[in-house]
Design a protein around this nucleic acid. Sequence first.
DNA 1: CGGAGGGTTGAGATTCATCAACGCGTGTGG
DNA 2: CCACACGCGTTGATGAATCTCAACCCTCCG
Lengths: 244, 244
Amino acid sequence: MYSFPKNKKKPQLFEGLSEESLQTLLQHSFLKEFENGQLLIQQGDIPQFVYLIIDGTLKTSRMSAEGEEATIRLLESGDVCMEAVLFMGGPSPIDVQAMGTTTVLLIPDKVIKTHVLEDARFSVNLLKIVTRHYKNAMHQIDAMQIKSPVQRVGYYFLIKHLESGHDSLEFSLPFRKQSIASYLGMTPETFSRTLKKMKEMGIEVEDDKIKMRDSFTLCHFCDSDTAALCARHDREECQQCPLH
Amino acid sequence: MYSFPKNKKKPQLFEGLSEESLQTLLQHSFLKEFENGQLLIQQGDIPQFVYLIIDGTLKTSRMSAEGEEATIRLLESGDVCMEAVLFMGGPSPIDVQAMGTTTVLLIPDKVIKTHVLEDARFSVNLLKIVTRHYKNAMHQIDAMQIKSPVQRVGYYFLIKHLESGHDSLEFSLPFRKQSIASYLGMTPETFSRTLKKMKEMGIEVEDDKIKMRDSFTLCHFCDSDTAALCARHDREECQQCPLH
DNA sequence: CGGAGGGTTGAGATTCATCAACGCGTGTGG
DNA sequence: CCACACGCGTTGATGAATCTCAACCCTCCG
């Protein structure tokens, strides 16, 4: 039985739940630590837990028989995974792997599956989480089909910029470059070359630190549904964005 | 107010709902017909309905400013869409377009959003639908990243083969070839050339009819999580599949 | 000190998209 | 009834873009 630290920010999974409901969920959950590279679950395994990252990072991916890997998501602390897989039925379509030492809260599948029918608020939380992942996946799909490497990286930077509040002109890459490259569907080499091109556009890259000239540098990479996330999307300035 | 015909197969959206619950949903819903090419919703619009296809086909896609299009899903009768978008919050990240004359049941967003908190069974239905879409999206991602055109088409055929019951050695393409090509992330030209290669592998293609030599022709394209859908996955024969 | 892994850079190969032309079936209007 | 245009699918030639392979630098660590 795990008790969630009061001082920590509540993850979306638990948002708006009654104390009682939360207790039910945590009652049979427990912490576990994984080492760098360790697999939490493999493609084909029957899922037994939902994983909530307490500290560290995970990667979800699909692997071909030839050993090529497609990264589906890169997750940080507060993120959940396998919640979608549980409701797909059947074995897991993805690998989940720790990238560095990572502490994870394991919530048994049965707890989730029964609780979802008892607390509608909880199932709505799950719905919101899964749909966000799905939205992400849709962006990934169109990125790989119709966007150049520069556009993919630019959009990735834009999202990170928006996440960090739009005020700071600086942020750092939350993952190894090769991981991001794979997530964006390109080789580390292409990613590296793309970063060089970004510099010519006014985006400084030094190791994992990204600095931009002004907060509109990334506007080229915005689209109509992402604009809604932008604090300034209803201001005049945004209208000037060459939405492309 | 629409009343769902008793003789028709109940769509997954309504599965296991009480008569009362179903009535609440249908009370403010209505049918609408769309013509070929007509847009039900555009990227950037605020979603107002969930669409349940009664008859015909729809396409969901993302469009770049340059006019390039990435197909996200191709939907047939019984499929739902926009249900995920509702819970993402914000404007729609996708276009929805009719491919041919299509009859759709429109369920207002408010009905969905309130009902989801009242009937946990309904929200679980939604969860299952969204996660299935998400799984699809994951397959699309890894297909475009690590699979050759032949593998993509092969996997697509495999799914269609499994859907049609694994017994028939024949099925037909449910959409125009160019639509399928876009869905698979390739040009119509490449799709056409790929079909020619498939013929050399023992898969007859004539217009939209696909005939295969035997029911194992497509096994090459299977993977561990898809195998679970196969009626014979626990038989010996499946072990022989050169899972790659 | 040596090895391993991450990241970068360069040169070459491969593959798919692009562009163009054509066959074919359908529908339309004179 | 025929001429014609149109959309879909196919085929061929070309080119561009990214992956691949290889070498290198760097830092970290035993």
